[in-house]
Design a protein around this nucleic acid. Sequence first.
DNA 1: GTCTATACCCCGATAGAC
DNA 2: GTCTATCGGGGTATAGAC
Lengths: 201, 201
Amino acid sequence: MKTTPQQDTDAALGTRERIVRTTSRLMQRQGYDGTGIKQISREAGATLGSVYHFFPGGKQELAVAAIRHGDGEFADMLREVLAGEHTPEAAVAACVRSLVEGLRASDWADGCPVTATALGTAGRVPDIQQAAAEAFARWRGLVFDKLKAAGIAEDDARELASTVISTLEGAELAAQVARSAEPLEAAGRHLARLIGSYRPA
Amino acid sequence: MKTTPQQDTDAALGTRERIVRTTSRLMQRQGYDGTGIKQISREAGATLGSVYHFFPGGKQELAVAAIRHGDGEFADMLREVLAGEHTPEAAVAACVRSLVEGLRASDWADGCPVTATALGTAGRVPDIQQAAAEAFARWRGLVFDKLKAAGIAEDDARELASTVISTLEGAELAAQVARSAEPLEAAGRHLARLIGSYRPA
DNA sequence: GTCTATACCCCGATAGAC
DNA sequence: GTCTATCGGGGTATAGAC
């Protein structure tokens, strides 16, 4: 039985990991400025002293760790759906289904684990911007590999991978704002069509 | 000569309008939680009393007014480029150029005037979410009209308009994070190609 | 590593004179 | 409509016992 409002699987984790996951989840929903360190320590079941023990750099260091964590989570999901489908078109569709599922399960609250944090600090905190840029680049790289493996020319694949990630980001945002899966589903269909137009006969 | 750090054209404006513009500009860069009412009053050259006189609903009412203002600004830009180009493909390209110009001019700080505010308050403040949803819907409507006028079937045009707005949003975000025009330029080329694939012969 | 207490500051919001 | 003063609370961060 839990006495703190932390997430189900966090009980057996180390303190540091619990803090990182809690920070990631909170900043994903509330952004950087909307998330307080006291709230993090409360919901992670750690004292304020522990938080500053593991993250002496304070809130900025916490945000960077949270973005890296979200980066890894999303990359894992991407790798899984990319590996589970034969064509990149099917993989994009599977990715959309996964994103829709996550949004619905959270009542449209949990979008991209990087966007909210990165957007609220654009230009103000270089470390955070850097971590977000690395995340986006990693995700583009995973899509690029899949497109290239499907026989698409390298230059085309690189540009396409960029647009696939951009479009999924934007459509997830539109879905959150509209509280509807439609923008994501339309984007998935269009991305599949676009990718198909680049495939070798 | 100015003594307050407000924007150039704001000097002759009424107090209310000056407050709205300042709020829109600040929340666009810093988000809802990152923007303080005292900062708004300072940069708008209005006293705190004036701010609460015009916006008794406080910060939430300010945010809604700021989003409506940003909505109108972006819609005006959209109408202008859509009317200035014959084909929807050319219009999308012109739109990308306009977005890139705005990003560069602000050193990649000024992205979509709605996203940052809406994202940081997703689910928490229904009024803000509603205003953001209306903005997105309006922009989709403008693109829809252009696509339909180009002879694209109504159902296709509706879905395409959704993806055009989603992709531009996502690509602008990616461009901010990467501090590079590339994601937006790639997205523009791909959107033109996608639209072209729906046009009647 | 964990905990409590606290310093110092800015937050949103209000009151009431002018 | 404009202005100043202030309230109550929460923000980040630190100090130092255990």
